[in-house]
Structure formats: structure tokens, C-alpha cells
Design a protein around this nucleic acid. Structure first.
Lengths: 191, 191
DNA sequence: TGTACATCAGTGAACGCGCGTTCACTGATGTAC
DNA sequence: TGTACATCAGTGAACGCGCGTTCACTGATGTAC
């Protein structure tokens, strides 16, 4: 079974993609390597040709999840020349982040809201988490919370991550929606 | 081995106490019943004389963690007649919640910041979580964020839970402290 | 007061299961001659 | 152009381990007679 020159890289990419989804949806501990590889049509033994350990896959998947998130939600600075309205873009970003769709589909959402708690608890803080926090902070500078505070992006991010976490944990659907709505109203910049 | 009449209730209380600590510290999946019972000087087989399943213990432990938290942080309404200063009490509550000590000792801290993410992800939302959110919301009404918004307690709670989660997940200690400080400054009422 | 029995919290072996990781092996293909 | 060999992504059995749960059993004590 010799493969084309980029075959291995392609397989590695597929493993990361599937893992990024599963880790966010089921947690790191809740994701087994056997079912993961099986879902890709591979056997689990081959995993170690791509990664030295499960933890290495966690790190790679976290970075991939972040990239996916930042591609999904456009960067106002990057798009500044395209005639895009930065305020409108930020409003859309916040509305998407705090939407029931994001709450109900952690597998393709923000890795901070789905994985940060587990990573912190398991004693494996990640510099990738630092990088995501920094980029989110920058992007959330124009938000409406804590006006004038240079750290208002961090305050907005904490409120967003907390809102998503709580909205997923409460049993009452009305309460869940109320949490998302309250935080959105508090941090979204005025139209 | 016949025991005194309240012996079983006492053992049950000890199991819940130890579990409440371990669940918050290591997560539900990360806490095994065998080591848990062993830590109490018991064998794991006896567990099922007290609880029908591990999930039942999770629910009982969550409620116990909440009680412990609310006892630890005094209730301004309850203490109103004692000459206590409600504003000062709330400031202390928020400072304690967003302290490095709370960040570094999830085992005796707020169950929302340690367990809500796992409960939401595992698809076991809990009405106990709803009850904790409601009590925190009420207690945080006088906070400084989103003034005039009737849901400002929820916004403050989301920011606090998110801040603790993120402060535990980032690798850079300075960043970790910055997140806690930023949220504390944003929601603490003025002196 | 003395004896036989019922109670039941806790014991400890066993169940099937999935986990992360290791490793000898396969076999299609590229390269060397 | 034909043959022998090296490569290496992926296979699949096996490792030891801890998990939640079950269950026949123990044995000290309270109760009934």
C-alpha cells in the first residue's frame, strides 16, 4: 500500500478534522481513538504513525478549531478595504456566537466554550488557548461592555464563554435563551 | 456489622461530601467510584446501598456543592438586620469568586465554573443548575455591569463563570490574572 | 435472663467493556541495478 | 526492459488498566420469645 506523496499529510488532516469536531462535541475524555479512526475508515493502530500521543492530537485539534472559527467569522480589520461595515460585522459575530445554533452545535463552534473548562480542569492549560483569547480580545474591542476599559474585550469574551456554558447546562429552555439574550444585549455595540 | 440508627445517613453524607469535592476538582468522568469509596475507608460494592447510580450521586453532589457555596458567601438579604453592609458583602463575594485562590481550588469552589461545561456537554442538564443560576442572579442584582438591565445578574454571572473557566485554561499566569482582574473591575459595584 | 432469629451496611470477587498504547506484520509502489 | 529490493502507511491482535455495576455473602447487633 504505497500512497501518493501527499497521502499521509491528507490523512493527518482528516484525523485532525474529525478530532476537532469530536473533542468539542464529546470532550477529550469522551472521545476514543478507536471510534475516531474507525469513523475515518482506518484502524486505530495507524494513529501513532501520525501523532505521538492523544494529547498531541488535542493540541493540533485545538489550533485547527480556532482557525476554523476565525475563518467562519470574518475579521473586520482584514475586510476593512472591502466596503464591509465593521460595526455590522461585529454585531453579526456576537449574534452568531450567542445563538441557539451555536449552543446546540458545540462540535463546530468555539473551542473555548466547549473545551476550556476540561483543559483547565485536567491540568493541561494550552498556549493555543492563550492565542485564541488574544485574538478574540482584539476582535471584541469595539463591544459595548465596560466602555473605556482597555480590557473590555476580555470582559466581553468571558461573558460570551460563560453564557454559552451556562446556556448548555441549564434544564429550562427559557432560561437558556434568556442567558444568551441578556449577554448579547449587554455587549453588542449599538447599531 | 449492625450500626447505630443514623450511621447509614452519616455514610451517605460522607460519600456526597467527598464526591462534591472530587467532581469539581477532577470532573465527573475523571472521578471513579472505586477510589472515591476507598478514600472513605469503604469498598466500592457498598456504594449501591446508598445511590442507584453514579448519575444520582452527581445530582446529590451538585446540590451539596451549591449549599456549601451559598453558606460560604453570606446572603445580603438574610444578613440585612445584622448591621452588615450589603455593598461591602457583594464586593467581597465577587472578589473571592474571581480570586486566584478560587481559580486554583475548584474542588471547594463554585460548581458552575467547574462542572457546568461537562454537564452541558454530556447532555445531562440539571435543574439544580437552574436553581444555582437563579440564586446567583438574585445575589448579583446590585453589580455594576449592564446598569438598568433586569438581567444584569445573569450577565455578571456569565462573566464570572467565563472568567474562571478561561483563567484556568490559559498557560500564561499574567494573562490568567488579567482576565480575573478585568471582570472583577467591570462588575464590582463602586465603594 | 438466655437463646434463636431477622436485619442490613458493608465486603470483595466477578461481569463485560472501552481505553491508550505497542508491535510484528502486510503489501503496493518507487528506486536501483 | 526486467528483476530485486527498500520504503512505509496502515493492519489487527495484544498489553495492562480502570471503569460502572451486580451479587452472594458476612457478621455484629436489635428484637422476639
Amino acid at each position: 500500500m504505497r500512497y501518493s506523496s501527499n497521502h499521509k499529510a491528507e490523512t493527518r488532516r482528516r484525523i485532525i478534522g474529525e478530532a476537532a469536531r469530536r473533542f468539542r462535541k464529546d470532550g477529550v475524555e469522551g472521545t476514543g481513538l478507536v471510534p475516531l479512526m474507525k469513523a475515518l475508515g482506518l484502524t486505530h493502530g495507524g494513529f501513532y504513525a501520525h501523532f505521538p500521543s492523544k494529547d498531541a492530537l488535542v493540541e493540533a485539534s485545538l489550533a485547527a478549531s480556532a482557525e476554523q472559527m476565525f475563518e467562519r467569522w470574518p475579521d473586520p480589520e482584514r475586510d476593512a478595504g472591502n466596503g464591509a461595515n465593521p460595526g455590522e460585522q461585529l454585531r453579526g459575530f456576537i449574534a452568531d456566537y450567542l445563538s441557539p445554533a451555536h449552543r446546540d452545535d458545540p462540535g463546530s463552534g468555539c473551542p473555548l466554550s466547549s473545551l476550556a473548562a476540561e483543559l483547565g480542569l485536567r491540568g493541561m492549560p494550552s498556549s493555543t488557548a492563550d492565542a485564541i483569547v488574544a485574538r478574540m480580545d482584539a476582535r471584541l474591542q469595539p463591544c459595548a461592555i465596560a466602555p473605556g476599559d482597555p480590557d473590555r474585550g476580555l470582559v466581553a469574551l468571558a461573558a460570551m464563554v460563560g453564557a454559552l456554558t451556562l446556556s448548555r447546562a441549564v434544564a429550562d429552555p427559557a432560561r437558556s435563551a434568556q442567558i444568551l439574550d441578556a449577554v448579547r444585549a449587554a455587549i453588542q455595540p449599538a447599531e
